[in-house]
Nucleic acid binder design. Structure first.
Lengths: 185, 185
DNA sequence: GTCTATATAGCGATAGAC
DNA sequence: GTCTATCGCTATATAGAC
Protein backbone atom coordinates (compact mmCIF):
# COMPACT_ATOMS: atom_id res chain seq x y z
CA UNK A 1 0.00 0.00 0.00
CA UNK A 2 2.84 2.37 0.79
CA UNK A 3 4.60 1.75 -2.53
CA UNK A 4 2.32 0.47 -5.28
CA UNK A 5 3.97 -1.44 -8.14
CA UNK A 6 5.22 0.84 -10.88
CA UNK A 7 3.16 -0.89 -13.56
CA UNK A 8 0.01 -0.30 -11.56
CA UNK A 9 0.64 3.43 -11.43
CA UNK A 10 1.57 3.57 -15.10
CA UNK A 11 -1.70 1.87 -16.03
CA UNK A 12 -3.73 4.18 -13.81
CA UNK A 13 -2.04 7.25 -15.30
CA UNK A 14 -2.68 6.03 -18.83
CA UNK A 15 -6.33 5.30 -18.11
CA UNK A 16 -6.76 8.73 -16.55
CA UNK A 17 -5.09 10.47 -19.49
CA UNK A 18 -7.32 8.66 -21.99
CA UNK A 19 -10.44 9.60 -20.05
CA UNK A 20 -9.41 13.25 -19.99
CA UNK A 21 -8.10 13.59 -23.52
CA UNK A 22 -10.42 11.33 -25.49
CA UNK A 23 -13.41 10.55 -23.32
CA UNK A 24 -14.78 7.49 -21.61
CA UNK A 25 -15.54 5.70 -24.82
CA UNK A 26 -11.94 5.76 -25.95
CA UNK A 27 -10.58 4.66 -22.58
CA UNK A 28 -10.74 0.95 -23.37
CA UNK A 29 -8.58 -1.76 -21.86
CA UNK A 30 -6.75 -2.14 -25.16
CA UNK A 31 -6.04 1.57 -25.46
CA UNK A 32 -5.06 1.88 -21.81
CA UNK A 33 -2.68 -1.08 -22.00
CA UNK A 34 -1.06 0.29 -25.13
CA UNK A 35 -0.69 3.79 -23.67
CA UNK A 36 0.81 2.34 -20.50
CA UNK A 37 3.23 0.23 -22.50
CA UNK A 38 1.95 -3.10 -21.28
CA UNK A 39 -0.13 -5.85 -22.83
CA UNK A 40 -3.78 -6.31 -22.08
CA UNK A 41 -2.94 -9.44 -20.14
CA UNK A 42 -0.39 -7.50 -18.13
CA UNK A 43 -2.96 -4.84 -17.33
CA UNK A 44 -5.50 -7.43 -16.28
CA UNK A 45 -3.04 -8.95 -13.86
CA UNK A 46 -3.06 -5.71 -11.85
CA UNK A 47 -6.71 -4.84 -12.43
CA UNK A 48 -8.81 -7.96 -12.91
CA UNK A 49 -11.64 -6.02 -14.53
CA UNK A 50 -12.49 -2.60 -15.84
CA UNK A 51 -14.48 -1.97 -12.69
CA UNK A 52 -11.33 -2.51 -10.61
CA UNK A 53 -9.49 -0.06 -12.81
CA UNK A 54 -12.14 2.54 -12.07
CA UNK A 55 -12.03 1.76 -8.36
CA UNK A 56 -8.27 2.21 -8.43
CA UNK A 57 -8.65 5.65 -9.96
CA UNK A 58 -11.25 6.71 -7.42
CA UNK A 59 -9.21 5.47 -4.47
CA UNK A 60 -6.32 7.56 -5.67
CA UNK A 61 -8.65 10.55 -6.06
CA UNK A 62 -9.88 10.17 -2.49
CA UNK A 63 -6.32 10.36 -1.18
CA UNK A 64 -5.60 13.47 -3.23
CA UNK A 65 -8.85 15.00 -2.00
CA UNK A 66 -7.83 14.51 1.61
CA UNK A 67 -4.54 16.31 0.93
CA UNK A 68 -6.34 19.13 -0.86
CA UNK A 69 -8.78 19.59 1.99
CA UNK A 70 -5.93 19.89 4.47
CA UNK A 71 -4.32 22.55 2.29
CA UNK A 72 -7.61 24.40 1.94
CA UNK A 73 -8.20 24.53 5.68
CA UNK A 74 -4.77 25.98 6.36
CA UNK A 75 -4.51 28.24 3.31
CA UNK A 76 -3.08 31.71 4.07
CA UNK A 77 -5.82 33.54 2.13
CA UNK A 78 -8.55 31.47 3.73
CA UNK A 79 -10.55 28.49 2.44
CA UNK A 80 -12.81 30.47 0.11
CA UNK A 81 -9.93 32.07 -1.74
CA UNK A 82 -8.13 28.72 -1.95
CA UNK A 83 -11.24 26.89 -3.10
CA UNK A 84 -12.11 29.25 -5.93
CA UNK A 85 -8.52 29.76 -6.98
CA UNK A 86 -7.93 26.02 -7.27
CA UNK A 87 -11.21 25.47 -9.10
CA UNK A 88 -9.46 26.90 -12.13
CA UNK A 89 -7.51 23.92 -13.25
CA UNK A 90 -3.78 23.92 -12.88
CA UNK A 91 -3.12 20.47 -14.26
CA UNK A 92 -2.30 19.05 -10.85
CA UNK A 93 -2.79 15.37 -10.10
CA UNK A 94 -5.93 16.27 -8.14
CA UNK A 95 -7.35 18.27 -11.06
CA UNK A 96 -6.72 15.41 -13.42
CA UNK A 97 -8.34 12.95 -11.07
CA UNK A 98 -11.40 15.16 -10.73
CA UNK A 99 -11.83 15.48 -14.47
CA UNK A 100 -11.40 11.77 -15.04
CA UNK A 101 -13.97 11.05 -12.34
CA UNK A 102 -16.29 13.57 -13.96
CA UNK A 103 -16.06 11.73 -17.24
CA UNK A 104 -16.85 8.43 -15.55
CA UNK A 105 -19.74 9.95 -13.60
CA UNK A 106 -21.29 11.31 -16.79
CA UNK A 107 -20.94 7.91 -18.37
CA UNK A 108 -23.06 6.43 -15.64
CA UNK A 109 -20.53 5.04 -13.18
CA UNK A 110 -22.22 5.59 -9.83
CA UNK A 111 -19.03 5.13 -7.82
CA UNK A 112 -17.54 8.13 -9.58
CA UNK A 113 -20.61 10.32 -8.95
CA UNK A 114 -20.52 9.24 -5.31
CA UNK A 115 -16.86 10.19 -4.96
CA UNK A 116 -17.49 13.61 -6.47
CA UNK A 117 -20.43 14.22 -4.20
CA UNK A 118 -18.36 13.14 -1.19
CA UNK A 119 -15.56 15.52 -2.11
CA UNK A 120 -17.95 18.40 -2.69
CA UNK A 121 -19.46 17.81 0.74
CA UNK A 122 -16.03 18.00 2.35
CA UNK A 123 -15.50 21.35 0.65
CA UNK A 124 -18.87 22.54 1.92
CA UNK A 125 -18.00 21.55 5.47
CA UNK A 126 -14.66 23.33 5.25
CA UNK A 127 -16.11 26.53 3.83
CA UNK A 128 -19.28 26.83 5.92
CA UNK A 129 -17.60 28.32 9.04
CA UNK A 130 -15.98 31.03 6.95
CA UNK A 131 -19.10 32.49 5.34
CA UNK A 132 -22.21 34.26 6.57
CA UNK A 133 -24.89 31.61 6.05
CA UNK A 134 -25.93 28.58 4.00
CA UNK A 135 -26.91 30.70 1.03
CA UNK A 136 -23.46 32.29 0.95
CA UNK A 137 -21.85 28.87 1.19
CA UNK A 138 -23.96 27.62 -1.68
CA UNK A 139 -22.95 30.63 -3.76
CA UNK A 140 -19.26 29.98 -3.17
CA UNK A 141 -19.57 26.29 -3.92
CA UNK A 142 -21.54 26.91 -7.09
CA UNK A 143 -18.94 29.32 -8.44
CA UNK A 144 -16.29 26.66 -7.95
CA UNK A 145 -18.55 24.09 -9.58
CA UNK A 146 -19.09 26.44 -12.51
CA UNK A 147 -15.38 27.03 -12.98
CA UNK A 148 -14.70 23.34 -12.75
CA UNK A 149 -17.42 22.44 -15.23
CA UNK A 150 -16.26 24.94 -17.81
CA UNK A 151 -12.74 23.67 -17.58
CA UNK A 152 -13.93 20.10 -17.85
CA UNK A 153 -15.79 20.90 -21.04
CA UNK A 154 -12.73 22.58 -22.47
CA UNK A 155 -10.39 19.78 -21.50
CA UNK A 156 -12.22 17.80 -24.15
CA UNK A 157 -11.07 15.60 -26.96
CA UNK A 158 -8.02 16.22 -28.99
CA UNK A 159 -6.52 18.93 -26.84
CA UNK A 160 -3.47 16.85 -26.16
CA UNK A 161 -2.89 16.78 -22.43
CA UNK A 162 -5.45 19.58 -22.60
CA UNK A 163 -5.81 21.54 -19.43
CA UNK A 164 -6.18 25.18 -20.38
CA UNK A 165 -9.67 26.66 -20.59
CA UNK A 166 -10.82 30.18 -21.41
CA UNK A 167 -11.71 30.72 -17.79
CA UNK A 168 -10.64 33.72 -15.72
CA UNK A 169 -6.95 34.08 -15.02
CA UNK A 170 -4.76 36.52 -13.15
CA UNK A 171 -6.51 39.81 -12.47
CA UNK A 172 -9.89 38.49 -13.64
CA UNK A 173 -9.71 35.67 -11.15
CA UNK A 174 -8.64 38.02 -8.36
CA UNK A 175 -11.62 40.26 -9.12
CA UNK A 176 -13.98 37.30 -9.11
CA UNK A 177 -12.65 36.11 -5.76
CA UNK A 178 -12.91 39.61 -4.29
CA UNK A 179 -16.52 39.93 -5.42
CA UNK A 180 -17.37 36.49 -4.08
CA UNK A 181 -15.79 37.21 -0.71
CA UNK A 182 -17.66 40.48 -0.51
CA UNK A 183 -20.97 38.73 -1.19
CA UNK A 184 -20.36 35.78 1.08
CA UNK A 185 -18.54 37.06 4.17
CA UNK B 1 -38.48 21.48 -42.08
CA UNK B 2 -41.68 22.87 -40.64
CA UNK B 3 -43.09 19.43 -39.82
CA UNK B 4 -40.47 16.72 -39.39
CA UNK B 5 -41.62 13.10 -39.85
CA UNK B 6 -43.04 11.60 -36.67
CA UNK B 7 -40.59 8.71 -36.66
CA UNK B 8 -37.68 11.14 -36.77
CA UNK B 9 -38.88 12.91 -33.65
CA UNK B 10 -39.60 9.64 -31.87
CA UNK B 11 -36.05 8.45 -32.56
CA UNK B 12 -34.53 11.73 -31.41
CA UNK B 13 -36.57 11.64 -28.20
CA UNK B 14 -35.54 8.07 -27.48
CA UNK B 15 -31.87 8.83 -28.11
CA UNK B 16 -32.04 11.84 -25.82
CA UNK B 17 -33.76 9.88 -23.05
CA UNK B 18 -31.14 7.14 -23.21
CA UNK B 19 -28.31 9.66 -23.03
CA UNK B 20 -29.85 11.28 -19.97
CA UNK B 21 -30.96 8.19 -18.08
CA UNK B 22 -28.24 5.69 -18.90
CA UNK B 23 -25.30 7.62 -20.33
CA UNK B 24 -23.63 7.86 -23.68
CA UNK B 25 -22.40 4.31 -23.64
CA UNK B 26 -25.90 2.90 -23.39
CA UNK B 27 -27.31 5.16 -26.09
CA UNK B 28 -26.56 2.75 -28.93
CA UNK B 29 -28.39 2.54 -32.22
CA UNK B 30 -29.92 -0.75 -31.17
CA UNK B 31 -31.17 0.59 -27.85
CA UNK B 32 -32.40 3.81 -29.46
CA UNK B 33 -34.29 1.98 -32.18
CA UNK B 34 -35.91 -0.33 -29.65
CA UNK B 35 -36.90 2.54 -27.34
CA UNK B 36 -38.33 4.44 -30.28
CA UNK B 37 -40.27 1.41 -31.42
CA UNK B 38 -38.60 1.08 -34.78
CA UNK B 39 -36.06 -1.31 -36.24
CA UNK B 40 -32.43 -0.42 -36.62
CA UNK B 41 -32.92 -0.27 -40.36
CA UNK B 42 -35.82 2.10 -39.88
CA UNK B 43 -33.72 4.33 -37.67
CA UNK B 44 -30.88 4.35 -40.17
CA UNK B 45 -33.21 5.46 -42.91
CA UNK B 46 -33.80 8.72 -41.05
CA UNK B 47 -30.30 9.08 -39.63
CA UNK B 48 -27.72 7.45 -41.86
CA UNK B 49 -25.12 7.29 -39.10
CA UNK B 50 -24.73 7.88 -35.41
CA UNK B 51 -23.07 11.19 -36.19
CA UNK B 52 -26.21 12.34 -38.00
CA UNK B 53 -28.27 11.33 -35.00
CA UNK B 54 -26.10 13.55 -32.83
CA UNK B 55 -26.34 16.40 -35.31
CA UNK B 56 -30.11 16.07 -35.27
CA UNK B 57 -30.15 16.40 -31.49
CA UNK B 58 -27.91 19.45 -31.54
CA UNK B 59 -29.93 21.18 -34.24
CA UNK B 60 -33.01 20.73 -32.13
CA UNK B 61 -31.15 22.10 -29.10
CA UNK B 62 -30.11 25.20 -31.02
CA UNK B 63 -33.74 25.96 -31.82
CA UNK B 64 -34.78 25.53 -28.20
CA UNK B 65 -31.90 27.75 -27.13
CA UNK B 66 -33.12 30.54 -29.38
CA UNK B 67 -36.57 30.34 -27.80
CA UNK B 68 -35.09 30.32 -24.32
CA UNK B 69 -32.96 33.36 -25.04
CA UNK B 70 -36.01 35.28 -26.22
CA UNK B 71 -37.83 34.37 -23.01
CA UNK B 72 -34.83 35.39 -20.92
CA UNK B 73 -34.57 38.81 -22.52
CA UNK B 74 -38.23 39.59 -21.89
CA UNK B 75 -38.57 37.94 -18.46
CA UNK B 76 -40.55 40.02 -15.92
CA UNK B 77 -37.95 39.55 -13.15
CA UNK B 78 -35.08 40.36 -15.47
CA UNK B 79 -32.59 38.12 -17.30
CA UNK B 80 -30.44 37.31 -14.25
CA UNK B 81 -33.37 36.03 -12.21
CA UNK B 82 -34.64 34.06 -15.20
CA UNK B 83 -31.23 32.63 -15.99
CA UNK B 84 -30.47 31.37 -12.48
CA UNK B 85 -33.99 30.18 -11.86
CA UNK B 86 -34.03 28.11 -15.03
CA UNK B 87 -30.57 26.70 -14.34
CA UNK B 88 -32.27 24.48 -11.80
CA UNK B 89 -33.69 21.85 -14.04
CA UNK B 90 -37.40 21.71 -14.58
CA UNK B 91 -37.48 18.83 -17.01
CA UNK B 92 -38.31 21.05 -19.96
CA UNK B 93 -37.36 20.05 -23.48
CA UNK B 94 -34.53 22.58 -23.34
CA UNK B 95 -33.21 21.16 -20.06
CA UNK B 96 -33.26 17.67 -21.49
CA UNK B 97 -31.46 18.80 -24.62
CA UNK B 98 -28.79 20.52 -22.55
CA UNK B 99 -28.15 17.45 -20.42
CA UNK B 100 -28.01 15.17 -23.44
CA UNK B 101 -25.55 17.53 -25.13
CA UNK B 102 -23.51 17.60 -21.92
CA UNK B 103 -23.24 13.83 -21.97
CA UNK B 104 -22.10 13.88 -25.58
CA UNK B 105 -19.61 16.64 -24.91
CA UNK B 106 -18.05 14.69 -22.06
CA UNK B 107 -17.81 11.67 -24.27
CA UNK B 108 -15.69 13.63 -26.68
CA UNK B 109 -18.15 14.83 -29.32
CA UNK B 110 -16.77 18.23 -30.29
CA UNK B 111 -19.99 19.35 -31.97
CA UNK B 112 -21.78 19.04 -28.64
CA UNK B 113 -19.12 21.03 -26.76
CA UNK B 114 -19.30 23.68 -29.46
CA UNK B 115 -23.07 23.96 -29.16
CA UNK B 116 -22.87 24.32 -25.39
CA UNK B 117 -20.22 27.01 -25.68
CA UNK B 118 -22.32 28.84 -28.27
CA UNK B 119 -25.37 28.78 -26.02
CA UNK B 120 -23.37 29.95 -23.00
CA UNK B 121 -22.07 32.88 -25.03
CA UNK B 122 -25.61 33.90 -25.96
CA UNK B 123 -26.50 33.91 -22.27
CA UNK B 124 -23.44 36.04 -21.53
CA UNK B 125 -24.43 38.56 -24.18
CA UNK B 126 -27.97 38.73 -22.82
CA UNK B 127 -26.90 39.18 -19.22
CA UNK B 128 -24.00 41.60 -19.67
CA UNK B 129 -26.14 44.78 -20.02
CA UNK B 130 -27.96 43.98 -16.79
CA UNK B 131 -24.98 43.70 -14.44
CA UNK B 132 -22.28 46.03 -13.20
CA UNK B 133 -19.22 44.73 -15.04
CA UNK B 134 -17.59 41.69 -16.62
CA UNK B 135 -16.68 40.21 -13.26
CA UNK B 136 -20.30 40.39 -12.13
CA UNK B 137 -21.41 38.79 -15.38
CA UNK B 138 -18.92 35.99 -14.92
CA UNK B 139 -20.17 35.44 -11.38
CA UNK B 140 -23.76 35.12 -12.54
CA UNK B 141 -22.86 32.80 -15.38
CA UNK B 142 -20.75 30.59 -13.14
CA UNK B 143 -23.54 30.17 -10.61
CA UNK B 144 -25.82 28.99 -13.39
CA UNK B 145 -23.10 26.68 -14.66
CA UNK B 146 -22.65 25.29 -11.16
CA UNK B 147 -26.36 24.63 -10.72
CA UNK B 148 -26.55 23.01 -14.11
CA UNK B 149 -23.54 20.82 -13.49
CA UNK B 150 -24.81 19.56 -10.16
CA UNK B 151 -28.14 18.68 -11.65
CA UNK B 152 -26.47 16.95 -14.55
CA UNK B 153 -24.46 14.78 -12.18
CA UNK B 154 -27.60 13.87 -10.29
CA UNK B 155 -29.60 13.11 -13.39
CA UNK B 156 -27.32 10.10 -13.73
CA UNK B 157 -27.98 6.48 -14.42
CA UNK B 158 -30.92 4.59 -13.15
CA UNK B 159 -32.92 7.53 -11.92
CA UNK B 160 -35.75 6.77 -14.27
CA UNK B 161 -36.58 9.91 -16.19
CA UNK B 162 -34.45 11.40 -13.44
CA UNK B 163 -34.59 15.12 -13.19
CA UNK B 164 -34.65 16.00 -9.51
CA UNK B 165 -31.39 17.01 -7.87
CA UNK B 166 -30.64 18.10 -4.31
CA UNK B 167 -30.09 21.64 -5.50
CA UNK B 168 -31.75 24.69 -3.97
CA UNK B 169 -35.49 24.94 -4.33
CA UNK B 170 -38.15 27.40 -3.29
CA UNK B 171 -36.95 29.77 -0.60
CA UNK B 172 -33.32 28.61 -0.90
CA UNK B 173 -33.31 29.45 -4.58
CA UNK B 174 -34.95 32.82 -3.95
CA UNK B 175 -32.26 33.62 -1.38
CA UNK B 176 -29.51 32.59 -3.77
CA UNK B 177 -30.93 34.77 -6.53
CA UNK B 178 -31.30 37.71 -4.15
CA UNK B 179 -27.69 37.38 -3.03
CA UNK B 180 -26.48 37.08 -6.59
CA UNK B 181 -28.42 40.13 -7.71
CA UNK B 182 -27.05 42.10 -4.78
CA UNK B 183 -23.50 41.17 -5.70
CA UNK B 184 -23.87 41.71 -9.43
CA UNK B 185 -26.11 44.73 -9.93
C1' DG C 1 -40.38 3.98 -45.53
C1' DT C 2 -39.58 0.04 -42.80
C1' DC C 3 -38.07 -4.44 -42.26
C1' DT C 4 -34.51 -8.79 -41.65
C1' DA C 5 -30.12 -10.50 -42.32
C1' DT C 6 -25.46 -9.96 -42.37
C1' DA C 7 -20.62 -8.00 -42.70
C1' DT C 8 -16.90 -6.13 -40.05
C1' DA C 9 -14.64 -4.46 -36.19
C1' DG C 10 -13.78 -3.70 -31.41
C1' DC C 11 -15.11 -4.62 -26.67
C1' DG C 12 -14.12 -7.01 -21.95
C1' DA C 13 -12.41 -11.10 -20.28
C1' DT C 14 -10.20 -15.93 -20.09
C1' DA C 15 -6.53 -19.50 -20.86
C1' DG C 16 -2.27 -20.88 -20.76
C1' DA C 17 2.79 -20.39 -22.26
C1' DC C 18 6.96 -18.31 -20.59
C1' DG D 1 4.49 -10.75 -13.49
C1' DT D 2 3.92 -10.32 -18.28
C1' DC D 3 2.99 -12.15 -22.58
C1' DT D 4 0.02 -14.06 -26.96
C1' DA D 5 -4.05 -16.10 -28.54
C1' DT D 6 -8.69 -16.48 -28.53
C1' DC D 7 -13.65 -16.64 -26.95
C1' DG D 8 -18.26 -14.56 -26.80
C1' DC D 9 -20.65 -10.45 -27.23
C1' DT D 10 -22.14 -6.14 -28.97
C1' DA D 11 -21.21 -2.09 -31.68
C1' DT D 12 -21.94 0.54 -36.27
C1' DA D 13 -23.15 0.05 -40.73
C1' DT D 14 -24.64 -2.20 -45.27
C1' DA D 15 -27.63 -5.00 -48.55
C1' DG D 16 -31.58 -6.09 -50.26
C1' DA D 17 -36.55 -7.90 -49.62
C1' DC D 18 -41.14 -6.07 -49.02
Amino acid sequence: MARPPLARTKVLDAFEALLIDEGERAATLDATAQAAGVSKGGLLYHFASKEELITGLIDRLDELAADDLEQMLSAPGGPVDFYIRTSVLSGSAFDRGLIAAGRLAQSGHASASDALRRIRQSWADGIRPHVRDDTAMELVLLIGDGLYYNNVLDAAVGSGSGLAGPMPTGAQLDALIALTLKAAS
